[in-house]
Simulated scan of single mutants.
Amino acid sequence: MVATPAYTVVLNWLEEQLRHGKIRVGDKLPAERALAEHFSISRASVREAIRILDAMGLARSATGSGPQAGATVISEPSAALGWALRMHIATRALPVKDVVTTRLLLETQAAWDAASGENDDHTDRDDILSHARDLLDRMDDPEISNDEFHALDAQFHLLLTSLAGNVVLETIMVSLREATIGYVQETVATLEDWPSIRATLQTQHRDIFTAVTDRDGKLATRLLRDHITWFYSLVPRAEK
């Protein structure tokens, strides 16, 4: 029987403290020595717990002395999920095809909700749509680099997803985008007529934007599905 690592007591303790509101995002964690003494474990085990929390997007450590030193509780779930997905995609345990299918399921639902307004709690809907329009205008600039285009593309999709009003869905979508950016960049590098493809993507983006703005959920969903599947069809078979 495998023994439970000593550092898990710190993780379990923090989960309970967060759940009951005794520790909140932005609070400092107790010092290493205090945690080690409280749980009767080594300081090395405490440091391992802090490293794991950092990797999970739940803590940020600062070295040195003074008020900024030590570990602070944060909440950045998409960063942790994104890294985990990227690593497992790299091992091929998670096929890119399945990741794309998952994105289709989630983002088309988000498009429906964003357009229909069924979960519309956004008082700043107009501001979000205005920002999305500005991103599209910037993406029209033929002088921007491919990397900048991809970054703006990701922001555009995530802005529309945010209109669905589902924080968990938005977090997962951020993670999926971060996890697949590498394969997107590799795919673009192999395409012979990228300027033409980029123009097609922009036409699709604007059609999706118009459907969401017009609150046509059915059309927005269909256009987004066609948009994602069309680009994925360009991926070399070996990468699928």
Rank of each mutant, 00 (worst) to 15 (best):
T4Y: 05
A6N: 13
A6E: 11
N12A: 14
W13A: 01
E15R: 15
Q17V: 02
L18A: 02
L18I: 04
L18K: 02
R19S: 06
R19H: 07
G21F: 09
R24V: 02
V25A: 09
V25S: 03
D27F: 00
L29C: 00
E32G: 09
E32C: 08
A34Q: 14
F39K: 05
F39N: 04
R43T: 13
A44G: 12
S45G: 05
V46Q: 11
V46N: 10
I52M: 09
M56C: 08
M56H: 11
M56T: 00
L58Q: 10
A59W: 01
R60M: 09
R60I: 11
A62K: 07
G64A: 05
S65L: 09
P67K: 10
Q68L: 11
A69V: 07
G70L: 10
G70S: 12
A71Y: 04
T72A: 11
T72K: 07
I74N: 03
P77R: 05
A80R: 08
L81N: 03
L81F: 09
G82T: 02
A84T: 15
R86C: 07
H88Y: 15
H88T: 15
A90W: 10
A93N: 15
L94T: 03
L94D: 06
V100T: 10
T101M: 12
R103L: 05
L104M: 09
Q109C: 05
A110E: 02
W112C: 07
D113Q: 09
A115E: 04
S116P: 00
S116C: 10
E118P: 00
D120P: 00
D120Q: 11
T123Q: 15
T123N: 12
D124S: 04
D124W: 05
R125H: 05
D126V: 05
D127R: 10
I128T: 14
A132V: 07
R133Q: 12
L135K: 02
D140L: 07
P142S: 01
D147H: 15
L152M: 08
Q155H: 10
L158E: 09
L159E: 06
T161L: 04
L163M: 08
L163G: 02
G165M: 02
V168D: 12
L169E: 06
E170D: 12
E170S: 12
V174R: 13
V174W: 13
L176P: 00
R177S: 13
A179R: 00
T180S: 14
T180M: 13
G182I: 02
E186Y: 06
V188L: 11
A189D: 13
A189P: 01
A189G: 01
L191Y: 04
E192L: 15
S196N: 12
I197S: 04
R198P: 03
A199S: 14
T200V: 11
T200A: 12
L201K: 14
L201M: 12
L201G: 07
Q202T: 10
T203W: 03
T203N: 13
Q204I: 03
H205S: 03
R206W: 10
D207P: 01
D207L: 09
I208L: 08
A211N: 05
A211W: 03
A211H: 03
T213D: 10
D214M: 13
D214V: 08
D216F: 02
G217D: 04
G217P: 00
L219R: 13
T221H: 00
D226N: 15
T229Q: 11
F231L: 14
L234E: 05
P236L: 05
P236V: 03
R237T: 13
A238K: 14
